[in-house]
Amino acid sequence: MTEQQQIPEQFDEIRADRACIGCGFNLYAQPVTKEEHYGLAICRCPECGTVAALQQYPTMTHWVNRFRALIAAIWVVVLLAFFVGNTGAISGMTGAACDEGARHMGNLIGQAHQNWEDEKLIKLKAIEAEGASDTQADPTSTQPAAPLDPLAALNAPGTTIITNSNGVTTINGVTMTTTTGNSSGGRWTSITNEWRDAYLDDTIALNGGLWANVNREFLIFLVPMTIIGTLFGIFWSIALLGATRKKALLVPLVACSIGLVIVLAIHAPDRTYVYGQSIAVSMYAPLIAPIMFAYQFLVIAFGIWIGRKVARVVVTLALPPRSRVPLSILWTRDGLPIPSAK
């Protein structure tokens, strides 16, 4: 083998960007040679020695695929964020509707409890006053005791009344009432478990039951629910182009189911609830929340149904024909022809 045969013939050099498939080194200015065995055009990387066949697409490094994966991941994160936002929004509105619907009952419970507390206080004071008068009265007297005056009983000597910063009042060490700022109609009155066990069911029954005392103003929430739900539906219809509209309905279904569980879990009957309003909400949430979530599901489904049509109309109106081409998937996805220039 001669010296002439060992050195491959150089035809030209690379005068553009071409990354080495082995190490990514830019092969700019490297000589192009003809490979001996097959006669292929090759270029040898000066860094790692890897041979690059030049009659192929130039390698673009792994970063292209990494960018693709990154964009896909960002899109998934955005969709998840919207899903969380959607669930939070519908749950929040439903929670507010439950709170509004329970307003009357909360007031009733608070007022009933307040009446019971007042009666209890008066009785206690009356007993104390009776005891005090007994110690001062003539034990040999045969006259019956005079009727007890509640006001006099409250002002009897030897009574210690303490009201702390939380509004909890104790009389001679006995907790009496915890009324704090009852200007809202009594629903923020603290309810004792003693009253709750003994009188709560009777109070509701005496006032005509739950449905008779629902505050119907909660229905006002249907208006913002309609607007926001439709907008979310339109978003899902456009964002989930890979799915049919029937499959896209799974998203609001799951969101409403999760929201329902969250609202019911938050307002589940609990002995730790102390306010009349929170007790009332815990009773109304199982009634109002399913209705509200069912309505929101229907509204979002309506948004999904009209979403792609709305998007097509907006794109057609706002963009000139040439700029519509990259968004043609809005038409092709539903088997429609892309609108012409006119």
Binding site: F11, D12, R15, A16, L27, K34, A41
Partner: peptide, 17 residues
């Protein structure tokens, strides 16, 4: 800079053409 494109016949760099 354009991407490399070599002539299949004589292996000349054609990227600038």
């Amino acid at each position: 800079m354009p991407r490399s494109h070599t002539c299949p016949s004589c292996l000349k760099e054609l990227a600038k053409i």
